[in-house]
Amino acid sequence: MKIKEAASRLNTTPRTIRFYEEKGLIQPEKGENDYRYYNEADLWKLQTILALREVGMSTSKIKTTLQDENEVRKYLNMQRSALYEEWLEIKDMISTLDQMLEQPSFSQKDIFTLSNHLKDVKQKRKSWEDQWNFDSQAKDYDKSLKRSGFRFNVHEFYEEALGSAVGFVKPVEGETGLDIGIGTGNLAEKCFESGASMIGVDQSEEMLKVCGEKHPTIDTRHGHFLALPLMDKQVDFIVSSYALHHLTDEEKLLALQEMDRVLNDNGRIAIADLMFEDEEQKEAVMDQFEEEGNTEAIFAIRDEYYGLRSQLSGWFEQHGYRVEVKRLSDILHVVYAVKV
């Protein structure tokens, strides 16, 4: 078919198609009088180009990614994550405006307080970064999970932690679960063995790549705790292991809000993570490491953000959850919460 017919089929203009030809994105056959002729493969490629432009991809990036379907999928995954972040910002703005308008009267101080809160939440979502370079760890992550041989071994009770999380949520066939900080998929694997469908979220593209290769049935999505790439009330249960301690205490509370947002009514959450019972126990454990001269443990704890089990349990209870806890070691706990 000629360019006008192709443009009509794709709901675009001949000028647009010529532009993509000039950029080298498509090379249709040319017949007599130098007329361009487009076959079905050309139309498919043009439709892909138009779709990628619609979600914000540059023409130079399209040219590169069209050579590799996996690159297209990777970009779309990241674009979806970005759009969810924008959507959450809009929701926050609307919620802030609603709070203002619900008040019979408000002062400049009230407006200032609410707007500052909104600004603070937006900043937290956008400022989180991977300080530990998980992309570089992905390829050998499973091999590096040694259970012994270290003076300070955070993975000593790794299998017990994952088993406890699954034992708490008890996934069943037909349910949809979410694993946040899925890594290479070890916890999610234990969940879908029961027949549940799993969505895995991680900010590391390399971790998602390894997870996808190991478990192609898992729906892997680029994202993070503070802006989950899911709609409201989309999952029946949430699990997470060895991930939440990469957030500050304030960020942890925002992460719990995000979990609550995407969780169905009567949903369940199980978090197996590096944390202390409370501030008193934290001080006692750190003092013990100091006395033993265990600088490895002290450095590891200070390098990350080991939380307090009491803080997580308290938040869940204040928001209508029933909570159970399990201690696996001085630094490893499982918090289970049921939305009631």
Rank of each mutant, 00 (worst) to 15 (best):
L208D: 02
E291A: 15
D330P: 08
D142E: 05
G200M: 09
K119T: 15
T64C: 06
V172P: 10
F152H: 06
Y336A: 13
S95I: 03
C211D: 15
Y35E: 04
G24N: 09
K126P: 04
I271G: 00
T96R: 02
T220N: 11
E86A: 08
Q108Y: 08
T176E: 10
E160V: 04
H155E: 07
C191P: 01
G163C: 12
E5Q: 03
F237E: 05
L101P: 03
D303T: 05
L247K: 07
V166K: 00
L230C: 13
E280D: 07
N264C: 09
Q288S: 11
Q108C: 04
F192L: 12
M1W: 05
D68F: 13
E69A: 15
I199W: 04
D273Y: 02
A82M: 13
E292F: 10
Y242G: 00
V235F: 07
D92N: 15
S164T: 06
I111C: 10
K30N: 09
E69I: 13
R302H: 11
I269K: 00
G24K: 12
R221L: 03
F289D: 04
L226C: 01
P14Y: 12
H319K: 13
Q137V: 02
Q108E: 12
E129Q: 12
I238H: 02
S148F: 13
I218Q: 01
D303V: 04
K139F: 05
G320F: 15
V285R: 00
M286C: 14
E102A: 15
L253V: 03
L97H: 13
S197D: 11
E32T: 07
L253N: 00
H222V: 06
A297G: 01
E189R: 15
